[in-house]
């Protein structure tokens, strides 16, 4: 006989569905770079377009993080420490995801994509090479949207900031998301028992890429020739 449906069990849908669907709804709207048509094409324009885009994207990432289950429960200080340490990883995962359908092209925004030639002309060849390595990795894995949103939330929760006060709370956030990924893959791809592990093992390359990109932008900041908004500067400095 079927067990009686209790209120508790009736209220408890599969956790994986809850988390994945929540993260899918929390996905931000598309961003546009809107390069200044008055500026001549070249490295200065590309850098200033990217810095302006990054500043707006950080605002979006902060709003997005507030929608990650468990994140708002962290202390304000810990929310700041987490975001200051991982914002660029979250941003780059978004860039990698947008670039997946395009062969050898980095889609920084809907209206701002660079192929190798354009990246060279814009003085971004080294930076784009690093991002392309990440894109190729996710393309080889045939990353799905559900996996992307889970991985992005995990990148947030995977902060190793030494400034975090309540590490246990961050670990709980990480565990809940890890569990959601395991459950998702268990249900979606039972024939690929190592897929969740493979996805998680892309996080070191994501961090490495973020470090390279950070140094690129920090050099630009030190040169002082590219205008940077205050929030972008604040977040760059927090990582150095």
């Amino acid at each position: 006989a079927a067990p009686p449906i209790t209120t508790a069990s009736a209220k408890k849908p599969a956790p994986m569905n809850t988390m994945v669907s929540h993260l899918l709804v929390a996905e931000p709207e598309k961003l546009y770079a809107m390069p200044d048509p008055a500026l001549p094409e070249g490295p200065a324009k590309a850098a200033s377009t990217l810095c302006d885009l990054a500043d707006r994207e950080i605002v979006v990432i902060i709003s997005w993080a507030k929608n990650i289950p468990g994140f708002p429960a962290l202390s304000l200080a810990d929310q700041m420490s987490v975001l200051q340490s991982v914002w660029l990883e979250v941003l780059l995962l978004g860039v990698a995801w947008r670039s997946l359908p395009c062969e050898d092209e980095i889609v920084f925004a809907e209206d701002f994509a660079l192929d190798e030639e354009a990246a060279r002309a814009a003085g971004l060849l080294e930076l784009s090479g690093a991002v392309l390595q990440l894109v190729r990795k996710y393309r080889a894995l045939r990353l799905e949207r559900e996996e992307y949103v889970l991985l992005k939330a995990l990148a947030l929760a995977n902060s190793d900031s030494v400034h975090i006060e309540d590490m246990a709370a961050v670990q709980r956030l990480r565990d809940v998301l890890h569990e959601a990924l395991l459950e998702y893959e268990g249900a979606r791809r039972p024939e690929e028992p190592r897929r969740a592990g493979r996805l998680l093992l892309t996080l070191p390359l994501l961090r490495q890429t973020a470090t390279r990109v950070l140094h690129h932008f920090y050099s630009l900041k030190l040169e002082g020739r590219v205008p940077m908004h205050k929030l972008f500067l604040e977040m760059l400095e927090a990582m150095m």
Partner: peptide
């Protein structure tokens, strides 16, 4: 917090989401 005042303000302000 003083050094990171924009992040601090953005985290504090508004509702957690508009979804």
């Amino acid at each position: 917090t003083e050094r990171h005042k924009i992040l601090h303000r953005l985290l504090q302000e508004g509702s957690p989401s508009d979804i």
